[in-house]
Design a protein around this nucleic acid. Structure first.
Length: 502
RNA sequence: GGUCCUUUGGCCGAGUGGCUCAGGCAAAGCUCUGCAAAAGCUUCUACAGCGGUUCGAAUCCGCUAGGGACCUCCA
């Protein structure tokens, strides 16, 4: 079955065909490690983790590259015209690399919490200054960039004369070139006047004396521009044309548009076959972002330590929350929505645990042909939905259709022989493959339950004996005290009890 | 100002020309249960408004209104 994905470049769904059959090169814009990751950042990392996992499921050999931006991007038109990373470093009185290390570690911790598979290569911007300088020299030699006062700018006007600058982001080039008209307030900016055109973007910036992060270059000491790091690292590790480039929709312009321009000049080919962009997470209808001052950091989310949160949320709840919406739709955050996801995920996961313990019947023909057929349709649809531009919400909906059936099988409401041996085995397999392998979900139960097991068994035995003797005072005491400790007791139909933490 | 996207029931969210129907959460009733919890069953509310295309539109087109993203670092 072919995989189709929505290509932002063509604005249509396309059948996925990799450049090299059987292999996929994927580049995803990683974090800028000048601060803590927030919920909004989690979306691309989880989304493209699913893409990665699904490609592996489809038997592709994938090289997944996700960079760490540790050099900071120059805010060319920003008020301070200063490297973001080093600016923050001064405020925090840290060495730049100390801060970079701190937030890189924190980022890795968060990715682990989310059960995201590590990328094949995680290159850093500072580790690829040489490649970036090389690329800039190449662009200059081809006549598409010029140097002014130790800075180098990309000549957008010249590029646009022969190439389609603005195609990815839907920008109209004349407007960009006419950008000075747009600026009602002419901001007096360092570097602004030295560009030949307002639409030009920096490839290299000369470093002012106070700038901490600086590297030697053919144009003097400075630091790389906004977009060149991704182009340089993607080209180095994935070649001049690779399959998938991912990131948030807010990176379409100027970041990805500029990447296309830079790489096209250097490599004579548009760098990316499929551009994939995830939509934003909103909060009260507004994009979550630093500039709106409405972020919920991941550490706050996991601890519940935020005015908007009534409780802590498990990383798997957040992951499930993200999977319940399509990656190209905006997803509205609220405490209530997250609580709904928590409950839903718990129910689905418990059904999965139940399913694992169900013994498949020994009959090859189902007792209830209608039900058996329905289940097989749901199971088959799961891959079809994923193939259609990663329809994770519909896959989850199908699993919820099966949850009551699984529970009814356990309780004997549906007889085991209603379903064929094969159908039950297929359910087990598909639930495992989709929940664990593709969606990367794990149990939210605490790890250290090993030692509890015999203790709980003893308590439940005592409680069972009490119940038989109709000593409900004792049985309720056990149950209530355990509930208070966070252990939930469930009495099963067969007279036995099960327990879960949390 | 320009470009693009979006508007689904109490809430979150799929879907996209025709099938009874997304799904989840919440709510109500019932079953099970010593009681609870869990589970099962049932019920409930919907496609922003107006016009058009069509045998038929939540789905396509137009207009109106609301919301949003990008045009500056931003997932």
């Amino acid at each position: 079955m072919p995989l189709s994905i929505y290509n932002s470049y063509s604005r249509t769904k396309e059948v996925f065909e990799s450049v090299i059959p059987g292999h996929v090169g994927m580049y995803v814009c990683g974090p800028t490690v000048s601060g803590e990751s927030h919920l909004g950042h989690a979306r691309p990392y989880i989304t493209f983790d699913i893409v990665y996992r699904y490609l592996l499921h489809k038997k592709f050999k994938v090289r997944y590259v996700r960079n760490i931006t540790d050099a900071g991007h120059f805010e060319e038109e920003g008020r301070e015209a200063e490297d973001k990373v080093s600016k923050k470093a001064q405020l925090e009185k840290l060495e730049p690399m100390e801060m970079v290390q701190k937030y890189t570690n924190l980022f890795h911790w968060a990715m682990k919490q989310f059960n995201c598979i590590e990328p094949s290569i995680e290159p850093t911007a500072t580790g690829h200054i040489v490649e970036q300088i090389g690329m800039i020299e190449d662009i200059i030699s081809k006549g598409y960039a010029y140097e002014v006062n130790g800075s180098v700018y990309f000549d957008v006007k010249k590029y646009a004369a022969s190439y389609d600058y603005g195609k990815l982001s839907g920008r109209v080039i004349d407007e960009l070139l006419d950008a000075s008209n747009r600026e009602e307030v002419t901001r007096d900016l360092e570097g602004q006047h030295e560009k030949r055109d307002a639409a030009d973007f920096a490839l290299w910036k000369a470093a002012p004396p106070e700038h901490i992060m600086r590297w030697k270059s053919p144009w003097g000491e400075g630091f790389p521009g906004w977009h060149i790091e991704c182009s340089a690292m993607a080209t180095k590790y994935l070649g001049s044309q690779f399959d998938i480039h991912g990131g948030g929709m807010d990176l379409l312009f100027p970041h990805h548009e500029s990447e296309i321009a830079q790489s096209t000049i250097c490599n004579h080919v548009s760098p990316v076959k499929y551009w994939m962009h995830n939509n934003m997470i909103t909060i009260n209808g507004r994009k979550m972002g630093k500039s709106y001052n409405n972020v919920i950091k991941l550490t706050e989310l996991f601890s519940g330590n935020h005015p908007l949160l009534s409780q802590a949320f498990h990383p798997m709840t957040v992951r499930f929350f993200i999977l319940q919406s399509h990656y190209r739709s905006t997803l509205d955050f609220s405490n209530e929505a997250l609580m709904a996801s928590e409950k839903a995920f718990k129910r689905l996961w418990e059904a999965y645990e139940v399913l694992k313990k169900i013994d498949a019947s020994d009959n090859s023909t189902p007792g209830d042909i209608e039900l058996d057929t329905k289940i097989n349709t749901w199971l088959d649809e799961m891959e079809v939905f994923m193939d259609d531009d990663l329809g994770s919400p519909r896959v989850i909906a199908n699993m919820f259709e099966m949850a009551p059936i699984i529970n009814s099988l356990k309780d004997g409401i549906i007889q085991p022989n209603a379903l064929s041996h094969q159908t039950i085995e297929s359910m087990k397999k598909q639930f495992k493959v989709f929940l664990e392998d593709i969606f990367g979900l794990t149990s939210t139960n605490n790890e250290n339950t090993e030692i509890l097991k015999p203790v709980m068994q003893l308590l439940l035995e005592i409680r069972k004996e009490a119940k038989i003797k109709k000593d409900f005072a004792t049985s309720d005491k056990i149950r209530n005290q355990l509930t208070a400790m966070g252990i939930v007791i469930k009495d099963e139909k067969d007279g036995n009890s099960s327990w879960t933490v949390g």
